[in-house]
């Protein structure tokens, strides 16, 4: 990314999502992420493309892990490079809000009460809606 910017990058914003050890009142020992590989790739590229059309960005990068993860493991990384911080901050939030609601990943938690699929949150839909033009 640094080389792509050729000196023009003034802001590099990163977001790292981590596995929490508690969710909905239960302790979580591990988390398994399933996804839809062909659609995941397209969905993430579409989100990055939309971010680049809305803000003046030099480059973006999304890395999302799948499989079994444990507490404090890193799940997702979003990097956004731009000339000025405003574009990079906004685009990073936009990418995460869209990733949470339109990229085909599903989490299953292992808790002391057994395994359960994580339910989608209304607050994530609300977070996405604020970006509607």
């Amino acid at each position: 990314m640094r080389s792509l910017g050729q000196g023009g990058i003034g802001a590099l914003v990163s977001f790292v999502g981590q596995v929490r050890d508690i969710n909905d009142g239960s302790s979580v020992s591990s988390l398994t992420l399933e996804h839809y590989p062909e659609m995941t790739k397209k969905a993430l590229e579409k989100i990055e493309g939309e971010a680049k059309s809305r803000w003046d960005l030099i480059d973006t990068c999304i890395i999302h892990r799948v499989g079994t993860l444990h507490a404090q493991d890193q799940i997702v990384l979003v990097l956004v490079a731009s000339a000025h911080r405003g574009d990079a901050f906004s685009a990073c939030e936009f990418i995460m809000d869209y990733l949470k609601t339109s990229a085909p990943f599903w989490k299953k938690e292992a808790t002391s009460q057994g395994e359960r699929w994580v339910e989608a949150k209304l607050s994530d839909d609300v977070a996405k809606e604020r970006w509607q033009k």
């Binding site: 999302h64 799940i75 990733l99 990943f105 989608a120």
Partner: peptide
């Protein structure tokens, strides 16, 4: 065609 529940990644 694919069917799935609401997504929960990130």
């Amino acid at each position: 065609v694919a069917f799935f529940p609401p997504v929960t990644g990130g």
